Amino acid sequence: MNQRMVGSCFEEKAAAYLQAEGLCVLQKNYRCRIGEIDLVAKDGDTLVFVEVKYRSGGLYGSPEEAVNQAKQKKIRRVAQFYLIQQGTPPDTCCRFDVIAIGGDGTIVHFQNAFGGI
């Protein structure tokens, strides 16, 4: 299984987890010329941009540690593009979550993992 297939598999697991938690998944793998957001969901009135990270072991750190400042900046820029492209009202509440999946399949959901737009 290649990296893209592995990533897709864990993104599907993350989407199922979010749905079980009551969120509505609006889009998977949103892509634009700037980059990609793994999942876009709705939690009540809040639009949620979700980064999914998987690590099979701890050799390279925990999954959530991979969402560093540079990655956060890129996700924010893609989210801004998404909001404009979708014609989202400027007063829409947004947040950025991280779903970390460990090698044992454990899912940890970090709500509001980093600052907004």
Rank of each mutant, 00 (worst) to 15 (best):
G102N: 13
F114W: 11
K74F: 10
R76F: 08
F81S: 15
A79E: 01
T46R: 05
T46G: 05
S62C: 06
V78A: 06
D43R: 11
G105N: 06
L83H: 10
P63R: 14
D43T: 01
A66T: 00
N112Q: 06
F96K: 02
D91H: 08
F81A: 14
C32L: 00
G116D: 08
I75K: 02
K42C: 08
P90E: 15
L47I: 03
Y60W: 14
Y82L: 13
I34W: 02
Y54V: 07
I107H: 05
L59H: 15
A70M: 11
V108Y: 11
E51W: 05
R55P: 00
V98L: 01
P89G: 06
K74D: 05
Q72K: 11
D91F: 11
C94K: 01
I37G: 08
G103K: 04
E36C: 02
Y60K: 13
I75Y: 01
G103F: 07
G116E: 11
A41R: 00
I117C: 08
G61A: 08
V98I: 02
I99R: 02
D45W: 08
G115Y: 13
N112D: 05
L83W: 12
T46C: 06
G44E: 00
V40D: 03
A100N: 04
D104S: 12
I117A: 04
Q72V: 04
Q111F: 05
G87Q: 07
V52R: 07
Q69H: 14
K73V: 05
A100S: 09
S62A: 11
G87T: 07
I75R: 00
D43I: 07
I37E: 01
L47W: 11
A113W: 09
Y82F: 14
G58I: 14
L39C: 10
G87Y: 00
I75W: 06
I99G: 07
R95E: 12
N112V: 03
T46Q: 00
R95Y: 12
A66R: 07
T46W: 01
L59M: 14
R77N: 05
D45P: 09
S56P: 02
P90F: 15
R55I: 01
R31K: 08
T88L: 15
L83E: 10
K71L: 00
Y60I: 12
T92R: 04
G103P: 06
V48E: 10
I34T: 02
V52Q: 04
S56H: 10
I99T: 02
Q69V: 14
V108F: 11
F114L: 02
F81M: 15
I99H: 01
D104I: 09
R55Q: 09
A100Y: 03
L83D: 04
E64T: 12
T88F: 15
N29E: 11
G116L: 12
P89T: 11
E36N: 03
P90Q: 15
T88H: 15
K74R: 13
N29V: 10
V48P: 07
G58E: 13
Y30Q: 03
A41E: 06
V52I: 09
G87E: 05
D38L: 09
L83Y: 06
T46N: 01
V67Q: 07
N29Q: 04
V98Q: 08
F110G: 01
I117M: 03
Y60M: 13
G103W: 07
F110L: 05
G116P: 09
V67L: 03
G102A: 14
D43N: 06
A41N: 04
C32P: 08
F114Q: 06
P89E: 11
E36P: 00
G44M: 04
N29I: 04
I107Y: 11
K42G: 03
N68M: 05
G58M: 13
I37P: 11
